[in-house]
Design a protein around this nucleic acid. Structure first.
Lengths: 173, 173
DNA sequence: CTTAGTTAGTTGCTTTATAGAACTTACTCG
DNA sequence: CGAGTAAGTTCTATAAAGCAACTAACTAAG
C-alpha cells in the first residue's frame, strides 16, 4: 500500500527534550566531525583553513559545525585582524570542560582500537610520567566501576529514563 | 561554471585512517543515536522494541545501529527463545569499557546543560555517597587537568596529528 | 478456528545532511 | 598587474535519517 502523506518536516530528531545529560552532551557534541574539531582546538588549532586542512572536512560542513559550537558556547570567535576581518576560534571554559570526555574517548580507543599502539602519549608534567586518567569516587576516592554504582532520579528527572525499565535492569549510567 | 563531473560515490567519510584514538572511538560510537543505545544497554535494556520505545528511534536506523555495534564488538546477540528465534542485545567487555566515556558525557551535561538539576544521581554503593568521577594521574594520583599535560607521538603515531600544528599550539589531548 | 497481540525486522518514500569542487570577496605581496 | 591567502558561500550528487506501512512467525484469547 502507498504511504499516506507527509505533512510535517522530517528533520533529524533532537535529543534536547530527553531530560538526560548524555543526550544534552550529544546535542552539542554528538554530530559527525564535532569532537574532532574540539580535539584540534585542544591541540591549539584555531583557524578555518587549519581545521579544514588537518581534518579533510568539507568547507560547508566545517562552517556549520563551527557555528553550532559557537551557538552552544563551546567556541568563541576572536578577531585577529581587520580588513578583512579574520577570526580565531578558541575554546571557552565550557569547551575546555569537554576535556574529560575527549580523554575518555582517547583512552578507550588506545585500549580497544589501536593495533599499532597509542598514536599519542600523554605526559603529566608535574610528575613527569606518562599518564592515563583513573576515575575515582569524589566521596571516598576509591576507583569507580559501573557495577559499584546505582542510578536514582535527580531534581531534573522526568518520566521515562529510569522508569519503564525491564525488570532485571541494573541502572549504572 | 558547471561543476565537472561526479564519478566517485560520495559516502560519508570514515575516521579510521586518521591514526587518532579519538577518531577510532568516533568510528564506533560517534554516529547519531549510538551512544544513547549504549546508555540504555547500561540501564539493562536489551531488546529491539524496548530500545525503540524508549528512544523513539526509527526502526530501520535502530537495526543499522545494532548491527554496527555488533560488528565492532560493543554488543553481542544472545537468543533468549527459539521459534521464532529472538535475541537480547548485551554489552561485551569492550562495550562496558565505554562507561568512562558515557560518564564523562553525563557529568559534562549535568554541569553545563542541566538547568533543572541533574536528571540522574549516581550513588557509589561501597561508600554509600552520591558521587562524581574525579580524574587522577595513574602515576602520581594527583587530579588531571589539560594544562598539566603534554602530548607526544606514540608507537601508533603517523604524520599529521601532532605535526603541522600552528606555532603557538599546546597539545593536551 | 479465527482474531488479536507480540516481537523483530524490512520496504518504500520523503526530507535532511554530507562530500566535493568551483566560485566569491577582500585583502597582501612582489 | 597578477598571484597568493583566508574564510566562506554556492552548486550538485549521493548518503543518511524519519515515518509509516507491511511481513513473518509465532502465542493467547474467545
Amino acid at each position: 500500500m502507498q504511504p499516506t502523506h507527509y505533512t510535517d518536516a522530517m528533520r533529524r530528531k533532537s535529543f534536547q527534550e530527553m531530560h538526560c545529560s548524555v543526550a544534552q552532551f550529544l546535542e552539542v557534541g554528538g554530530e559527525w566531525w564535532t569532537m574532532l574539531i574540539v580535539r584540534d582546538a585542544f591541540f591549539g588549532v584555531s583557524r578555518f583553513d587549519d581545521f579544514h586542512d588537518r581534518l579533510g572536512i568539507s568547507r560547508n560542513v566545517l562552517t556549520q559545525r563551527l557555528e553550532h559550537l559557537i551557538e552552544h558556547g563551546i567556541l568563541e570567535r576572536a578577531a585577529y585582524q581587520d580588513k578583512p576581518v579574520r577570526y580565531d576560534y578558541r575554546l571557552t571554559d565550557k569547551g575546555r570542560a569537554l576535556w574529560p570526555v575527549l580523554n575518555a574517548m582517547r583512552q578507550w580507543g588506545d585500549e580497544w582500537a589501536a593495533p599499532d599502539g597509542p598514536p599519542v602519549i600523554v605526559t603529566h608534567t608535574p610528575c613527569g610520567h606518562p599518564t592515563t586518567a583513573i576515575h575515582i569516587c569524589s566521596a571516598c576516592r576509591e576507583p569507580l566501576t559501573p557495577e559499584t554504582l546505582k542510578a536514582t532520579p535527580g531534581p531534573g528527572a522526568r518520566d521515562g529514563l529510569l522508569t519503564n525499565l525491564p525488570p532485571k535492569a541494573t541502572p549504572t549510567a
